[in-house]
Structure formats: structure tokens, C-alpha cells
Design a protein around this nucleic acid. Sequence first.
DNA 1: GTGGTTCTCAACCCATTGGTTGAGAACAAG
DNA 2: CTTGTTCTCAACCAATGGGTTGAGAACCAC
Lengths: 129, 129
Amino acid sequence: MAVDQLSRAFVALADPTRRDIVARLSLRDATVGELAESYAMSMQAVSKHLKVLEEAGLVSRSRDAQRRPCHLEPQALDLMTTWIERYRRQAEERFSRLDAVLAAMDHGDVPPPQPTPRHEAAPNEGASS
Amino acid sequence: MAVDQLSRAFVALADPTRRDIVARLSLRDATVGELAESYAMSMQAVSKHLKVLEEAGLVSRSRDAQRRPCHLEPQALDLMTTWIERYRRQAEERFSRLDAVLAAMDHGDVPPPQPTPRHEAAPNEGASS
DNA sequence: GTGGTTCTCAACCCATTGGTTGAGAACAAG
DNA sequence: CTTGTTCTCAACCAATGGGTTGAGAACCAC
């Protein structure tokens, strides 16, 4: 499951160790071994975490003899903020419209109270990708 | 696992169904039953998804007789964008500094090439919370 | 009261995840 | 070639996650 880019990115950042890896890589590139020194787990485990980050497009890796330096890819972070901001903005617009209605009611100029319509056009899965 | 607020929020948005629920709730509040009509799964399953979103602070719920209307909480989304933007900005600053160095090299005024120091001060888990 | 609606809880199932260990690939340096 | 270093792959294990069904709580309407 979690086959799309966005799901993989959110899954990747859902783990505290992987978020910490991202934080470190934002300061400087690092190898698997360097990163592994920071955590109470085997290098294999860190390697797995990096694979998750890489498949989410958050990290890229080059070659330097045996070393595999890791590099943060900020565009993948953009993908997430774009998604989040879209719906945050949508929600806040809606709330401010609601506030406007409430303010109007305080002034007594209330529009005819229409009963809440149910089941209108709504987003589908395509909207979240 | 995933005990902190930030982890819970990322876990919550890692699932496509839950992202779609957030998208819908950004347009209007909805009850469990209304949401369940949109997905090929039982109301119990949707109820579980809402519980995850609620415990992540992304959704709040009120009472209306048997109904449990769901309401999107945009502040929780802020928490995520704040985290992401912090490290995206950090990384991009670093890259633009690197670009500056490369540009300087093109001009011939290259600073003495010091060998890359390893294992300096780095973020710990506290930095990601 | 009875009945219908809305929703949650509990138990269960199977796939995935996050860790482990052991083996080995790939490379640099003697 | 041998040795040491860095890293990945494979197998395994316990725990979690996303779904199911069945039962029942809570509420309105009659």
C-alpha cells in the first residue's frame, strides 16, 4: 500500500528517527555510517530508514567508493507543504466566511435560514493526490 | 510508537483515505455516516480513521444527538508545515551558499580547500519534536 | 415501552513495519 | 591476494495498521 509519492513522503516523516535524519541532512550530507553513530540501532536499520526516505524522494544518494553519501531533496518537502497548505487555506477561508455570517446576524440582517443540504459534490481520491 | 503529536499527524496523513477525509472536511463538516458513503468500506473502518485523525489533533468532534459531526482543525496542519519548512529552508540556504562557493571558484578566487571535517555538532531527537 | 438510526467497542485476520542477526558484495590499501 | 571498511540483502520476529464482522450504546420518534 501507500503507493503514491505523497503517501510515501508522509509515511517517511511519520517516524521520529527518519525526521531526525532529515534534520541532520538539512545541515550537511552524511554517509550511512555517520548517521548510524547517532542512533541506538544497527547500521542495517538506518540503511532501511534511508531506503524509505529515498523511495519517498526525500533523499538522494551518490557513490564515493564504498560510501553512499545521502543528500536531502527539498522539492519533495514542497510537495507536502503544497498539499497541506491547500486544505488549511480552504478550511480557514470557510471559517472566515462563517464569521462574516455570524457578524451579519449580530446586525440583524440575517439571510433566510436554509436547511443544511446534504451530500453535495465532494472531493474524491483524485483530489488528494 | 508514534507517541508525539507530530508523528501522529504525519501518520494520519500518510493514508490516502484519511487525506481525502481531510480534503472533504476542508469544504464542510460532516458526520461519520456521510463520510462513509464515499468509500468502499464499512462505517466502522471510517470511524477508526476519524479516531486517528482526532488523536492527531487534525479533527475535532461535537455531539448532535446520535450524530458526531467532524470538524477540521487547521492549527494541527500548521504544526506540520512549520516543521517541514524549517528544514526545507535550512537545506536551501545551504545549497545557495554552495552555489556561491562554486561561483567564486569560477572567478578563480578559491579559498584554501580544507578537507571535510567529520562528526560535528548535529541535531538530536529533540530537534525534530 | 418498541423500533430505527448513528455510531463505537471488541475480537479477529492478514499484510506491513521496525528492529534484529548473519552473510556477502564492493571497494581501498597493504 | 588478503585484510579491513562500508554498506546492502535475506531471513526472521514481535508489534502495528487497516480492514472485517458482531454486539451494543445512545439517542430520536412513534
